[in-house]
Each structure stands twice: as C-alpha cells, then as structure tokens.
Simulated scan of single mutants.
Amino acid sequence: MVLSLVLGSRMISWDELIAGLFQPEVDSYGANVVRQRIARTIFSLFCGAALGVSGALMQAVTRNPIADPSILGVNTGAALFIVIGMAFWNISTASEYIWLALIGAMITAVFVYGIGSMGRGGATPLKLVLAGAATSAALSSLVSAIMLPRAYVMNQFRFWQVGSVGAANWSVIGTFLPFLITGIVLGVIAASALNALALGDEVAKGQGVRTGVLKLVAAFAGVILCGATTALAGPIGFVGLLSAHLIRLLLGPDMRFIIPMSAIAGAVVLTLSDVSGRIIGSPGELEAGVVTAFIGAPLLILLAMRMKVRSL
C-alpha cells in the first residue's frame, strides 16, 4: 500500500506522504497526489482480493488446477454484455456495468461448464479449458462485430478492455463493496464443504455434503466476484491463477486457509502489478491487466506442462 501511494509517474517524498494522509490542511501538489492515490490503492486491493478468491473457488468447484475467470471465458462473457449495453442501451454508470457484467459472466460460466461436461468423463480439466478457450474466441468475435461499425463504442471500450484500476474513485468503491463482501462471505462459508468435494463427489455425498447446492453456491460466489471486478476494472486476467497457486504451495490444500489467504495474495499481486505498470510506463503508465498477463501467461504454460492438466 505504501509503494502504491509513493511510486508512480510522480514520486512522493516521505513528508508529502505524511501530509497527504494525516494533514488535510496541507494543499501541496504532492499531498493531493497521495490523496488521489488512496482510492486507487484501496480499489486495487479490493479487486485483487475478489479475483484471488474467485480463482480459488473456480479451481475448487471444477477441480481444475488451472481454472481462472480469464481462462474459462467468464471475463469475455462479461465484456460482451457490457459492449451490448454500450452499443444499444448507452450505459455509462458503474451500477449498470456491474449488473450487465454479472449476467454475462453467469451465462458464460454455465455454458462453458455445460460444454465441458459433455461426453465421457464429465467436466475434466482439459475439456473445461478447451471449452473456455473456444467460448472466449467466439464471444470475442461477437464483441468485435458489435464494436467495429460503432466508433463511439470502440473508443469507450478500448480503454476498458485492457484492465486497469486507474479510474477508481470512492463512488466506484462503494458500488463494488457489497459484491465483494457477498462473494467472499459465501466462499468462506463453503470452504469446509469444498474440502470434502476435493475428495470426489461420491465421498463428499457420503459425508453429507449436497454437492449440487455446494457447486452452485461456490460458483455463484466466484462469478459475482469476477463479474463485478470485470465491470469496473476491465478484464484483468491471471490474478486468480497466480494467487491460488501461491497460497496452495505455501499452506497446502485446505480451502479454509486458501480462500482468505487468496484474497490477500490477490490484493498484493494486483497492487504490485499496478505499481509496476506505473513505473515501467513512466511518465505515462502501463495498465495492470497488461502486467498480470505478461506474468500469468508463462506461468499457465509452465503449469500445463508440469501438471499435465490433471485434476486437483
């Protein structure tokens, strides 16, 4: 958090940091920069936490070690509905973005899981990844088809689609907070049952777990977190993949630890990516979504090679 407040195209001194945080009567340029970065930093932490928990939940529900909202096409589904709203309903507010993104994310998640479940063996990790990739490619084509004839939509969408927390303000944070709390609370409640689900559906049922309800609740929580974040910050990828794998490596497979700690790891990953983008792109900035993709794509290839896309 301190790095996010201090580093960027305008470096902040210690005195300016103290003035911006604790001395509201000071009206210097550096103090005002710090005050503007506070909302951005908090929003970055919240978005990273949401994506971290969303990735952990999707990996648990699908028993897929490389599940992530961006890999399974959920981000693209949210993006499609936002583009439809921009093109045909002239949406412009954060609340409108969120509801459309949630609808698109939910429909896409159900569709991808349904396609991946077809055939022998059910929803295997490889089939889910392939279904997500195919769905994402098809939806991306629809996004382009809607945008290309409409220059005003393209101008509005091109800044959003990269994925950035730079447009944060307190109003956006207030709109996002209920979805963040709801998703994380549902995830924490489902954590113990998800441990049983990791042993297989039959074992979980033998322990009294209603697997269908559990998967629905956990997937709903993951989609809420992913959809709300995508609506307000754009389709930032790989944060859930990075966070959940880091925590599983450090703390083991217990979802009671993975879910809350993935929130912290996701917040750290996204905030550090945002700070790195500001430093690398100075005097402008490189959006956080570009940085996370640059880190996450090689990690995905490495995981696929080492784990051979096996189930959790």
Rank of each mutant, 00 (worst) to 15 (best):
L299C: 10
S282C: 03
K308C: 09
L299F: 15
L300G: 07
M307Y: 02
V291E: 02
R306N: 05
R278M: 11
L302N: 09
G281C: 08
M307H: 09
L302D: 05
I295M: 08
F294W: 10
G284S: 12
G296N: 12
E287M: 05
L286T: 14
S282K: 03
P283S: 10
A304V: 15
K308L: 06
S282F: 05
L286I: 15
A288T: 09
E285L: 08
L303D: 06
M305S: 14
P298K: 15
L302R: 14
L299Q: 04
A304W: 03
T292Q: 03
L302W: 09
V290A: 11
R278T: 10
T292I: 12
A293N: 02
E287Y: 01
A288Q: 05
E287A: 15
A288E: 03
K308A: 13
I295N: 00
L299T: 08
T292D: 02
P283A: 06
G296F: 12
P283W: 07
I301P: 04
G296M: 12
P298L: 14
I279C: 13
L302A: 15
F294Y: 01
P283K: 09
G281L: 08
L300I: 14
L303P: 00
G289Q: 09
V309A: 12
P298N: 11
I301T: 13
M305K: 13
G296I: 11
V290Q: 01
L303S: 10
V290I: 15
T292S: 06
V291A: 00
M307N: 11
S282I: 01
R306I: 09
A297V: 15
G296E: 07
G281W: 02
P298C: 12
A304H: 13
G289H: 12
I279E: 03
L299E: 07
G296T: 05
F294N: 00
I301V: 15
V290H: 06
E285T: 10
V290P: 00
E287W: 02
G284M: 09
K308G: 08
K308M: 03
G281F: 02
L302G: 04
E287S: 10
E285C: 05
F294I: 15
K308P: 03
G296S: 08
K308N: 15
I301L: 15
A297K: 11
G296D: 11
E287I: 03
I279F: 04
R278V: 06
E285W: 04
G289W: 01
I301N: 06
A288Y: 02
A288S: 14
M305W: 11
R278H: 10
G281P: 02
A288K: 05
E287N: 11
M307G: 07
V291H: 00
A288D: 00
M305Q: 11
I280E: 03
K308Q: 12
M307K: 13
I301K: 04
K308H: 13
F294E: 03
F294L: 15
R310Y: 07
G289Y: 08
M305L: 12
A293Y: 07
L300C: 12
L303E: 01
L299V: 14
R306H: 03
L299I: 15
A293I: 01
F294G: 01
L286Y: 04
L286N: 06
R310D: 08
I279Y: 04
M305N: 08
E287R: 11
F294S: 08
I295C: 00
A304L: 15
